[in-house]
């Protein structure tokens, strides 16, 4: 191929200005498309080691007034332990399971989002997949935070004031 057939980038004649910008229905649609998960509040997060007892994990949930603990070891996400796990697997069996390690009753391999995913990705995990608490990871798999329904609702209210 001769040099004459290769277009010179400096002379490219179809700049983005030639295209109409995307038109959104409102500020929330624009935010869902153009903002990232990083722009939904995802901190603070509460973490716990996998070998801590279920009884202690329940005390931490109660004491910290949070609905979900991220179970992690050396920065690696192993699972989540939430109010729903307490309801489903602990409440009626408390005395029997309170000394077991939390890893035995946590929800393993939770669905997560990357902090660079679009904000809509977090909505999708909640609305389509049905998970209430969505861990947020960096692209190198480091745990960065958690998005909850409360934080997503705040995001909606921020862009669509109720009044």
């Amino acid at each position: 191929m001769s040099d004459a057939t290769i277009p010179d980038p400096e002379e490219f004649q179809d700049p983005l200005e030639n295209y109409d910008p995307k038109v959104y229905a409102d500020a929330l649609e624009q935010a869902l498309a153009e903002q990232t998960v990083d722009q939904i509040r995802h901190e603070p997060m509460a973490t716990i080691a996998p070998d801590v007892s279920v009884g202690e994990a329940v005390k931490q949930l109660a004491g910290l007034h949070v609905a979900c603990l991220l179970v992690e070891q050396d920065g690696e996400l192993l699972g989540v332990f939430s109010d729903r796990d307490v309801l489903d697997r602990v409440a009626l069996e408390f005395d029997r399971v309170k000394d077991q390690p939390v890893r035995s009753l946590m929800t393993e391999n939770p669905v997560f989002v990357y902090e660079t995913d679009s904000a809509a990705a977090a909505f999708s995990v909640m609305a389509v997949a049905g998970f209430r608490h969505v861990p947020v990871l960096s692209l190198d798999q480091k745990l960065m935070g958690i998005v909850s329904p409360q934080r997503v609702t705040e995001f909606v209210q921020q862009h669509v004031p109720a009044t």
Partner: peptide
Amino acid sequence: DQVMVQRIGG
């Protein structure tokens, strides 16, 4: 168009 087309994380 924004939410239903997302890759479900993980």
